[in-house]
């Protein structure tokens, strides 16, 4: 088993929380993990990404080679496109549809969708709306995790257990609302 995943978004959107839950589940499964993050200046509203690699065999590089990512998970549609050269030809993009516009020259959403349409395997989910519907507007990242959970090579229940462990110290209601967000994401991806 080997999954190379690029997590993408804008600084502050919470891509690292997605990585934490996947990493936690992978560690419990006794898998090897490498996860490269970017901290510092670029976190201030700039584009951010994390390379997450999980494998049953040892992993050499902390970075994913171009053309080798099985999956791009993005909390923002334009950011999903930024890492296209890293996506394997049979790889998947799972992205939020809601643009995060904090620059004056943000492209037309039609152009973004047209480019996404050229990719073989794309799942588009309005995670912001689903998170709101699920009563957890700050859980958009966990909705997105739910939406891609069937592509990660780890049983979805393991992520639920990961969410329980990670959010346990924040109280039962936080755990429940995140589980709800996760399941709403799963459901949305099946549509």
């Amino acid at each position: 088993m080997k999954k190379d995943i690029i997590l993408a978004g804008v600084g502050g959107q919470g891509i690292l929380s997605i990585a934490t839950v996947i990493g936690e589940a992978a560690l419990k499964e006794n898998l090897n993990i490498k996860q490269a993050e970017v901290h510092g200046m670029s976190q201030r509203g700039g584009d951010v990404q994390s390379n997450l690699r999980i494998s049953s065999d040892p992993i050499a590089s902390d970075l994913i080679p171009k053309g080798c990512a099985d999956l791009i998970i993005s909390l923002e549609p334009m950011e999903a496109l930024r890492y296209l050269p890293y996506l394997a030809k049979d790889g998947w993009i799972v992205t939020n549809t809601e643009p995060f516009v904090n620059i004056p020259n943000y492209p037309a959403i039609e152009d973004i969708n047209a480019e996404l349409a050229k990719i073989a395997n794309v799942i588009k989910v309005d995670v912001d709306a689903i998170a709101k519907e699920a009563g957890n507007p700050r859980g958009a990242n966990i909705v997105l995790l739910g939406a891609c959970s069937h592509l990660l090579g780890i049983e979805p229940e393991k992520f639920e257990q990961g969410i329980e462990r990670i959010f346990a110290r924040k109280g039962e209601s936080i755990v429940d609302s995140n589980l709800k967000a996760f399941r709403a994401g799963q459901k949305a991806a099946c549509k």
Binding site: V10, Q43, G45, I103, Y106, I112
Partner: peptide, 8 residues
């Protein structure tokens, strides 16, 4: 389509 998104 993508454009740079510098930090701010």
């Amino acid at each position: 389509v993508t454009v740079p998104r510098p930090p701010a």
